[in-house]
């Protein structure tokens, strides 16, 4: 049951990342990896929010481990940083690495804060 929920959530989260990445690049260009940063920060915000809610464990597995886990990616972000650095674009490389981590952790904290501030019955 747990495995099915993980797979279902991820089956939605991964294509959502692909489509969102394309949409952001269409709007803002592909020179700096804004698309991946956007999904990583949005996914961290959502997971922080979900973990602050009194959710049943099955919902946490489906939406947290599955959806948010697959919506976000560390492999893509690291590859991008390395590509920027090896292309001699050191400032964008450092900006991508540091900004991604800082914004994602801040988003996770904000999401958690928002969930715990809501007046749940």
């Amino acid at each position: 049951m747990t495995a099915l929920l993980v797979a279902l959530g991820a089956a939605v989260g991964a294509p959502l990342r692909y489509l969102a990445d394309r949409a952001v690049q269409d709007r803002f260009g592909a020179r700096f990896p804004w698309g991946t940063m956007t999904v990583n920060v949005a996914g961290s915000l959502l997971l922080g929010f979900l973990l602050g809610l009194p959710l049943p464990p099955a919902a946490g597995v489906l939406l947290g481990t599955g959806l948010c886990g697959a919506l976000t990616t560390y492999s893509t972000a690291s590859y991008e940083t390395l590509r920027l650095a090896t292309a001699g674009r050191f400032r964008p490389a450092v900006a991508n690495a540091v900004l991604s981590v800082a914004a994602a952790v801040a988003a996770a904290a904000l999401g958690h804060l928002a969930a715990t501030a809501l007046p749940w019955p």
Binding site: G43, S44, L47, G69, S75, T76, A77, V105
Partner: peptide, 18 residues
């Protein structure tokens, strides 16, 4: 995009640090 993107996660790492 699929296997490795689904395997690695940025969100879990961010909430663990928080």
């Amino acid at each position: 995009v699929g296997v490795l993107g689904g395997y690695t996660t940025f969100a879990t790492h961010a909430v663990e640090a928080r």
